[in-house]
Simulated scan of single mutants.
Amino acid sequence: MAVPSAHEFHWQSLSRLASGRVYHSLCEVGGQMYMLGGCDAVGRPSPALELYSPEGDRWMTLPQMPTPRAGAAVAVLGKQILVVGGVGEDQSPLKVVEMFNTEEGKWRKRSTLREALMGVSITVKDGRALAVGGMGADLLPRSILQQYDLRKDVWALLPPMPTARYDANTHLLANKLYVAGGRQCKRPVKAFEVFDAETRSWTTLPSMPCKRSYGGVLWDVNGRLCLLGGLRQGGHQSSKFTKNVNIFDTSQGCWLKSEETVAMKTKRADFASAFLRGRMVVAGGLGHEPSALDTVEAFHPQKKKWERLSPMNSPRCSTSSIVIRDRLLVVGGVNQVPSSAHEILYVKEEEYL
């Protein structure tokens, strides 16, 4: 498959947010982007729900969430958006679950979690939401795996993960739910495990090669897990920015040797990352510069090298991002203070607006 060349990628600034926002959640329903919650400049969780309509490049304010929250886990079930856990106004984890019907424009309260959790990872399988791990009010990680049935409005417990954690990365491949990394009491974990939905059992996979946090985590179309950059921790050393790339091949069940991977050009953490038109793309984040980065690079699979793309219009880290119709939208984040920037990366041959 031919991939676009570096000069074909183009950034465009879109209609800004009403105010700076960070730790908000994004999802897509019907080709449109919904933005939920987040924190404002003074760290207050927001109840906001906004819809970005690309046709008119405008934001529409929708009915607010009943519960203000930041860092919520979000799952799309048909035309409904399920919002799970996160951090509430008192800065504590939430057990409240709410659902927005995009056709009716209404919120409904749903069955709560068994306990308040933040840092839950959520995936959808066969119309049901699978919620993995999280951190409780006692600041300890959980190993819980729970499944939400929309029709019954019930959370069912499935066999727990071998390793308790929060902020893990989850990916569904056929009947298998992969859970990579995450944190325990602010420390990154190397655990990599897979849940087989048919046998309802967990298998421990070879651990991630290094402890890292705030890196990029991507899955390619061939079922390979790609870990990019981040903050690396080892022994008693302090955290260090890295440009390392590690790749796990699920068909072989092993991590590729280091000589089979290509490091990024720039050491960075807390950046936006995505697969876009067959290329791994990383944008912004933090590095060894004193301020947030605007640099962008993309991996060319045939040339086997990272190439610089045009920089972002607004340097920032801690963004929320989503790919919709082969375009990467990067929303909010931080550049010393929460940012209201909103921009899109697309291939120039297809004018976006």
Rank of each mutant, 00 (worst) to 15 (best):
T102H: 07
K109I: 01
D57S: 08
M35R: 08
V97K: 01
S46C: 09
T67W: 08
R108N: 10
Q64N: 14
G37K: 03
P68R: 08
P68F: 10
A72H: 11
R114N: 11
E89C: 05
R108M: 09
N101A: 04
L77P: 13
K79F: 04
G86W: 09
G38T: 02
G71M: 06
T67S: 13
P63F: 15
P54F: 15
R44P: 00
V97W: 02
G86P: 15
V83G: 05
P68M: 05
L113G: 06
V42R: 14
Q80N: 12
G105K: 10
E98Y: 09
G71W: 13
A72Q: 08
Y34N: 00
P66Y: 14
S92V: 04
E104L: 10
D40P: 12
R44W: 13
G78D: 08
L36V: 03
V83T: 07
E50C: 07
P93I: 08
A48K: 02
S111I: 00
G43M: 09
G71K: 10
V84S: 06
L94N: 07
V74K: 04
G38C: 01
V87Y: 13
R58P: 00
G78N: 09
M99P: 01
E103S: 06
V76Q: 08
P63Y: 15
P66D: 09
G78S: 09
A48M: 07
R108T: 12
G43R: 04
P45V: 02
G38P: 01
D57M: 06
A75W: 07
E50V: 06
G85A: 03
K79M: 02
G88M: 07
P63S: 08
P93D: 03
Y34G: 00
